[in-house]
């Protein structure tokens, strides 16, 4: 147990490459236990990649990923699958199994990992669905649900095994204000009620700031800044300020890098 117990997830000097292009260069991130931590950054900054590194779905080119005292990249395939039982992930699309109904979707982790009797599975599933407010939708198929409901069912499935760490991949994308509000409340509620560690990857400023206890801002393959949401708003770093205030032009230019205007319009091709 090298990892500090105050942190549920620790990335140490992680470098990740796609082909020869580096997505992350020597990144250190520490996620405090029992808190809601936001990971924010502009689209395409590799936030989701970061989440997949924490779930060891991607392997870093260098560095260590410590989760609950285990360095994931060093685990064998079967140990890794065991370690993942302690993690729940809410994917962007919900990722419900389309051939199973709501009940079976939530029951799925219980069925594959435990030998619980049918009545107990039923009780747990009902409990989890009650927590997300969808106990009534038990017999529906995933394609009969709205986007927000899908995400809530997926959330119920993610907490079915009572994980210690819950990761949310862009939970607010494409949600109407009501669904958004419901999710924000659920994330906070589950975090406090179950005493789990929550990691929210998002570029939705207002919502993430409103629930996160601590925020990392990533971009350019690096951690640009970290701190409580309020501190970050007044950051000295112009890139963080641009992102946190949503300014169209700044250190991240409005124009994609191109040859000088004159060269393209007047010059020879």
């Amino acid at each position: 147990m090298t990892a500090d117990n105050a942190y549920a997830v620790e990335l140490k000097g992680v470098t990740f490459k796609r082909g020869t292009r580096s997505i992350f260069e020597n990144v250190d991130i520490r996620i405090p236990r029992g808190k809601v931590t936001g990971i924010m950054g502009p689209s395409g900054s590799g936030k989701t990649t970061l989440l997949r590194l924490m779930g060891a779905q991607l392997r870093p080119a260098a560095g260590e990923v410590w989760v609950n005292g285990q360095n994931l990249p060093q685990l064998s395939r079967s140990d890794l699958f065991d370690a993942r039982k302690n993690m729940g992930v809410l994917f962007q699309s919900g990722a419900l199994f389309t051939d199973l109904d709501v009940f079976e979707n939530v029951a799925f982790p219980l069925r594959v990992h435990t030998d619980l009797p049918e009545e107990m599975v039923r009780d747990i599933v009902l409990m989890k669905l009650q927590a997300v407010g969808l106990r009534g939708a038990i017999e529906l198929m995933p394609d009969e649900l709205s986007g927000g409901m899908k995400r809530r069912v997926a959330l119920a499935r993610a907490i079915a095994m009572d994980p210690q760490i819950l990761m949310y991949d862009e939970p607010f994308v494409g949600q109407d204000p009501i669904a958004m509000g419901v999710l924000v409340r659920l994330i906070r509620l589950l975090n406090d009620a179950l005493g789990i560690t929550s990691i929210v990857v998002s570029h939705d400023l207002a919502e993430t700031s409103s629930i996160a206890d601590y925020v990392y801002v990533v971009g350019d393959g690096q951690v640009l800044g970290q701190g409580a949401p309020a501190e970050l708003k007044d950051s000295d770093n112009p890139r963080i300020r641009q992102f946190m205030k949503g300014q169209p032009d700044g250190p991240v230019p409005f124009h994609f890098s191109a040859p000088p205007l004159g060269a393209d319009f007047l010059g020879k091709r």
């Binding site: 779930g55 699958f81 993942r84 992930v89 994917f91 990722a95 419900l96 982790p109």
Partner: peptide, 12 residues
């Protein structure tokens, strides 16, 4: 639809 990733993270 991330169902494969989701299976992986459920530990299957």
């Amino acid at each position: 639809t991330e169902q494969l990733s989701s299976l992986e993270m459920i530990g299957v």
